[in-house]
Amino acid sequence: MTSSNLFGPGDPAEPPGPGQGRLGRPLGPIVAGCPAEHRAWLELVREAYLESGLTMTVLSGRVHMARSKISELMSGRRYPHWELLLTIAAELRLPAGPLYRLWRQAAPEIRRKSRAWSAETAATVAVQYSPPLHHNGFRDLTESGYRFYAGVFLTDPARTAAVDETYDQLWLAWAKALSSPDIRRHGWGVLRTSVMSRAPHIDNCPHFLHTAFDTLALHNLSGLEHAQAASEQLAETQDLFRAMSRLPAPQLDVIVLRFLGGMTEEEVSDLLGVPLAAVRSDERHATRFLENVLCPPPDTEGTLS
């Protein structure tokens, strides 16, 4: 059974609808400069709050916490203690297991060493909460592809952190994932955001020369017919990676999976959750771009007829 059959529209656990007629001051934006790892869980907590229909006043009364403290938490101005976040998560019906891991991963290093952030707490949370069955099935189907993709751009421990963060984010908002048009496409979007937030960039393009060279799949570059012919004319394969980094996101992903990962078109389509025709189109346009960059046509200007 493919992932599209197992996790299609119509599965149970539809997310609650947004609150109607919410009173009180609207939720302010997340502060500028909030780190990506902090945003990974904060944005999902904010979404759960907005969908709950609760006002800040009602939530404040239920968790016995000042509205100013909740507002600081929701805006990312201050990193909360776990006990405070857990109290709010319980009211918003968010699973504690993935939230704890996301929270702990983003916690400032000094707090990770404190008693409140002990390993015993992590173990207790993990025992009390296990992922939904469908979540485990989805992870089994996608994890190897996710880990390979993350490894092209990142080295450990960042690679492992990006993949684990992806599955924790999906679990934290599993109802939303199940109700998406295609859970595979939704999951890939979460993974890509997590990976690219950690990958170094030059001129807004992901810089992955060293990590790509370290992957065994680099030897599969011979499958890229036109770009391979062009790259043989270059002194270093680095030029190929620099050119790849300039591809639009869908084309880059297809090229990485197809010719660094050695996946078939069907496997790429299934992992990304996009039609096979889209994979072929992205591959065709990407190959043409690489051809033009790596082996441009000769300049005929000024030649005699």
Rank of each mutant, 00 (worst) to 15 (best):
L133G: 01
W117K: 00
E165R: 15
L86S: 14
Y129F: 03
S4A: 08
F208C: 14
P200S: 06
V125L: 12
A107V: 03
G76T: 00
I110K: 14
S222L: 08
R258P: 12
T287N: 15
L271C: 04
R39H: 00
K69H: 08
E267M: 08
A173Q: 10
E83P: 00
S197L: 01
A158F: 01
Y79D: 02
G137Q: 07
G137R: 07
H135N: 02
R288S: 10
E37D: 10
E83C: 02
P275V: 07
R139T: 02
R93V: 07
A177I: 06
S130E: 14
A217N: 12
L50S: 08
A235K: 14
L99D: 05
T211L: 08
L94N: 01
G21R: 13
M1L: 14
L50G: 02
P200R: 11
A277F: 03
T124D: 15
L94E: 00
E232C: 14
L50D: 05
P296G: 10
A217Y: 09
A177F: 01
G189H: 10
P132F: 02
P157M: 07
G187H: 01
D239T: 07
R78H: 04
A107L: 05
P29Q: 05
S118H: 10
L178S: 00
P12K: 05
V125Y: 03
L209A: 10
L209V: 15
R93K: 14
V190L: 09
L44N: 08
D182Y: 01
T264A: 08
G17I: 05
P206H: 05
L27S: 03
L252P: 10
M65F: 04
H210S: 13
Q228E: 07
I255D: 08
G189E: 10
K176R: 15
I255T: 14
L50H: 03
L86C: 12
L6C: 05
H285E: 10
L84C: 04
F138A: 09
L216C: 07
G8N: 08
A126P: 02
R22F: 02
V163Y: 02
H207T: 06
H219E: 14
A158I: 03
G97V: 04
T193Y: 03
G273L: 09
A116R: 13
Q251T: 09
G10E: 04
R111H: 11
A90F: 05
K176C: 03
T211W: 04
T303G: 01
R67W: 03
A249Y: 04
L6F: 04
P206V: 04
T300R: 15
P157S: 04
L42R: 02
T300H: 12
P132K: 03
T124I: 15
Y100W: 15
H201S: 13
C205I: 06
G189D: 09
S194F: 01
A161T: 14
A162I: 06
E291N: 15
L85E: 03
R104F: 07
S269I: 05
P131W: 00
L247R: 13
L44A: 08
M74H: 00
G53Y: 03
E47M: 11
C34A: 08
T155H: 12
L304G: 06
E283C: 11
R198I: 04
E91Q: 14
E72S: 05
I183M: 13
P157D: 06
P26Q: 04
P80L: 05
L216I: 14
L170H: 06
E14D: 11
H81M: 05
L170E: 03
I202L: 13
